[in-house]
Design a binder for these strands. Structure first.
Lengths: 184, 184
DNA sequence: AGTTGCAATGCAACTCGTTGCATAGATCGT
DNA sequence: ACGATCTATGCAACGAGTTGCATTGCAACT
């Protein structure tokens, strides 16, 4: 339900085609919201029907035709309405936590490669965020920029937390592994 | 797809009826994984069909009959297989981030109540976790306990991060509000 | 000339999960 | 005696999201 609004925000930031949105959702925006192109096309079609967005077809000379969407007044109204509406708190779902608890019923050391992968992935993301921070948010910021920076800051905070927690978990798993070797 | 495995882990920790699982998923386990009872019954039925779990009907003298499920050898095999298998990295989805970026196209101060709610919710959770920590994880811990504690620690870490980030975001939103008042 | 890859859009089938409803006995306050 | 609430299980319909496939055309490599 909220992909609609994520797309509205993204289209307010910059009117775009479905394809463009899909690519943006694979990059910067995708760090806090993800969607496939099929889903995006579906939602765009629905929102066009509802009058929240309007499309302008740009005939490409070299490239294929693009349908560039922008947010209508109705769409902006819906966005404002949604912003004021309380979110129903989302359920956390993390399979890695399930796995860690599941390790009690298996050889815990077998989880180490998985945690290594996750630690590396989070380290990579953190590095990516720091690059974006240095590149886009070092000077003085207007309102829109400041808000975007605050969103990025959540990424920095959470990836750091992930990284530290993964290290801690790996220490724990290693400890079980050593116990097994020294106490046969 | 992973609710199956979350249930397997939960049933390994303690064989239970669907109803019991549903309640447990509303409490401790629900902090890192959530499911409704309908979904749980559905998945239990599927897993019973597949032979991952087996049910024993307990006829209640006073209470209604209960179907108590436990994990079979096949189910344990599946759990081990899943534990070793790499997770496909889950997409982050946070509507609050979308809202914060969306605030650029609306009156940012209107988001303050929403952030207050979220801050309070995270503070409450954090307090809950700290209680669980003091109650269940202060003495020496066996392997299973230690793993559960490590999962709880992620909750402590992330709720702290949320709390701090919400405060920071609220400061920012307040600043826009003041700017508006002093620069009309 | 042929293959690979990218830009661009979309349909169809499926799975996962939610919402709403139904049932039925037990317990408990008023 | 009556309604409310809790235990306990489940169906049906829907919506959101994924997976797989299809199409069209251009560009670039081999």
């Amino acid at each position: 339900m909220a992909l609609d609004h994520a797309l509205l925000v993204s289209l307010r930031e910059k009117p775009s085609s479905g394809y463009e949105l899909a690519r943006r959702f694979d990059r910067s925006i995708g760090y806090f919201w993800h969607a496939t192109h099929q889903q995006i096309y579906k939602v765009l079609a629905r929102m066009e029907e509802a009058g929240w967005v309007a499309a302008e077809v740009q005939a490409g000379e070299t490239a294929p035709d693009r349908k560039v969407f922008s947010v209508t007044a109705t769409g902006q109204g819906e966005l404002s309405r949604w912003l004021a509406e309380p979110l129903t708190p989302e359920a956390t779902r993390d399979a890695l936590m399930v796995k860690l608890r599941g390790a009690a019923f298996d050889d815990p050391a077998r989880l180490l490669p998985e945690f290594q992968r996750h630690r590396d992935a989070h380290a990579e993301r953190l590095a990516g965020y720091r690059q974006i921070e240095a590149r886009d948010f070092s000077g003085p910021l207007d309102r829109q920029r400041a808000l975007q920076y605050q969103v990025l800051k959540s990424g920095l905070r959470f990836e750091t937390a992930w990284l530290e927690w993964c290290e801690e978990a790996m220490d724990l798993l290693h400890r079980f592994d050593n116990n097994k070797e020294t106490n046969p």
